[in-house]
Simulated scan of single mutants.
Amino acid sequence: MEIKPHVLVNAVPPYGHVIANEKWRDSALVQSLKGTGNVKTIFEEELGMVDFHLSNKSCILYVSETDIVAGNNYKRKLVRFRNANSSLQGIVVAEKTRLSEQYFPAMQKFVVIELGLTLLPVASQLEASQLLTQMVHMEGKDNPFRKKSVSRLLDPVVMSLVQQIPGVGKVKAVALLQHYSSVIQLCNAETCELETIVGQATAQSIHNFFQKPFF
């Protein structure tokens, strides 16, 4: 059952609910959410750049396969999303499909490294609805494993990104992420600090990777 109160942009939905931008009302993603019966949807026209707002003060921007393949226009949208929601945790959910896969690494670097946002790939709106349902039910205040569960959800994405750095395999990626809690911290790390973790050659490789322009 849909709930349609007047919702302020900065309002926090109750546990088990998600505020969705009105444009998603008839989408496959929202229809799938309704089908689960576990997540109630509140529709709101005044969410600005936000597509979905969760009760743990995180907000989601959805980037479709078409947006990614079309070119760099989505970058301006992402920057506006980041700037407009500085008080919230910004999460970008993007469609990684056969068509968009070749463009995904560049987008990943832009979203995670340059903007400092979390990027979660999905294959379709159906998979996105499953992810959204999982995230909503990780928000319970009485769940002592909430933070740990969220980190398990995001780790594969971050691991994949870090392993794109030349000379960094799975073992070194794990070592780096045990020391640095985010890619942003890794990006800002001094070479001498990195040397103590991965050695001189790889430390220099990491430094060069983050210093060079991506586009």
Rank of each mutant, 00 (worst) to 15 (best):
Thr66Phe: 07
Gln134Trp: 14
Val168Gln: 02
Gly71Pro: 10
Val136Gly: 06
Pro144Asn: 07
Lys141Met: 09
Asp142Asn: 03
Phe110Cys: 01
Glu101Arg: 13
Arg146Asn: 14
Leu54Lys: 02
Lys148Leu: 09
Asn56Lys: 02
Gly71Met: 03
Gly116Lys: 06
Pro144Ile: 00
Ile42Leu: 07
Glu101Val: 10
Gln164Met: 04
Glu127His: 09
Lys57Asn: 02
Asn38Arg: 14
Ser86Glu: 14
Gln102Glu: 11
Thr133Lys: 15
Leu126Lys: 14
Met138Ala: 00
His137Gly: 00
Asn73Met: 07
Thr118Gly: 03
Gly167Glu: 04
Val63Lys: 02
Ser100Asn: 10
Phe104Gly: 01
Glu101Met: 08
Met49Gln: 12
Phe81Pro: 15
Val79Trp: 02
Lys148Arg: 08
Arg76Trp: 13
Leu78Glu: 10
Tyr103Ile: 00
Leu47Arg: 03
Val50Ala: 02
Glu45Leu: 01
Gly90Ala: 15
Tyr103Ala: 07
Cys59Val: 15
Val39Gly: 05
Gln108Gly: 01
Tyr103Met: 07
Ala70Lys: 14
Arg76Thr: 05
Val122Thr: 13
Ser160Arg: 04
Tyr103Gln: 07
Gly169Lys: 11
Gln108Thr: 07
Leu154Ile: 09
Ser124Asn: 13
Ile42Glu: 03
Leu126Ile: 12
Arg80Thr: 15
Thr118Gln: 11
Gly90Thr: 12
Val112Cys: 10
Ile165Ala: 02
Gly48Asp: 08
Arg80His: 14
Ser87Ala: 15
Asp67Ser: 12
Gln102Cys: 04
Gly90Gln: 14
Leu88Ala: 00
Met107Glu: 09
Arg76Ala: 03
Ser100Tyr: 07
Lys75Glu: 04
